[in-house]
Amino acid sequence: MVLLAQFLSINANDLTEYTRKAEVSVEVEDKDVTTYASLGWKEVKGGLKSGELGCEFLQDVAATELDSIMWPLLGTVVPFVVRADQAAVSTSNPSYSGNVLIKGWNPIEGSVGDEATVSVTFPTSGAVARATS
């Protein structure tokens, strides 16, 4: 699989035209429940689940563009949707969605001669859902 047309929406704003990378990761804490009955083997159970939405954008600070969309969201919890392709949601193009805390924003990043990019990671708040229809 090669990602050619990924879709990203944050707070109902389609940010696909600015997005270079969108990564959804989820994990479960491992809780040690080892006892003497474990006979020397460590036993674990799943604890709290958490996730992150990592993004890399090409920055645009013009009125109504990326920076003006993201800046007001700082400190708020907003919905997100990510798909591997911009096509409709299906069994071969699942949608991952939930809510993220916009906990930071880097309005200006880069060195001399670089394209202006923004790399951010937002923690999820609540469940991350996978949908195929």
Rank of each mutant, 00 (worst) to 15 (best):
E43G: 06
V89R: 00
T19R: 00
L3N: 11
Y18I: 03
Q6D: 13
I108P: 09
L74F: 10
A84C: 07
F57I: 05
T19P: 00
W71Q: 05
S111H: 15
S9C: 04
A87M: 14
I10D: 00
F122P: 01
G40E: 06
P107K: 11
S97I: 01
E27H: 10
I69V: 09
E56R: 10
L53S: 01
P79E: 07
T132S: 10
T34H: 02
T19W: 02
N106G: 10
E17G: 09
V26N: 05
A37S: 13
L66Q: 01
N13A: 14
E65F: 07
L73Q: 02
S50E: 07
S90H: 12
N13C: 09
W105C: 09
S119M: 11
P123W: 05
Q6R: 12
G75C: 04
A5E: 11
S111F: 15
K103G: 11
E56I: 11
S50D: 10
V82S: 01
R130K: 12
T35P: 00
E109M: 14
G98Y: 03
A63Q: 11
G113Q: 07
P107H: 13
T34N: 02
L3C: 09
N13Y: 15
L8S: 04
Q59E: 13
S125M: 06
A5D: 12
T132N: 11
L39Y: 05
G110W: 11
A12M: 12
D67W: 06
E29V: 05
V81D: 08
F80Y: 14
Y36N: 03
S133T: 14
D60R: 05
A62C: 14
E17C: 12
L66T: 02
E56Q: 15
T132M: 13
S38N: 07
D67S: 08
K31R: 13
E52H: 08
G126W: 05
L101K: 01
I10S: 02
N106I: 10
I108E: 15
V128M: 04
A37G: 12
A37D: 15
G110C: 13
K49E: 13
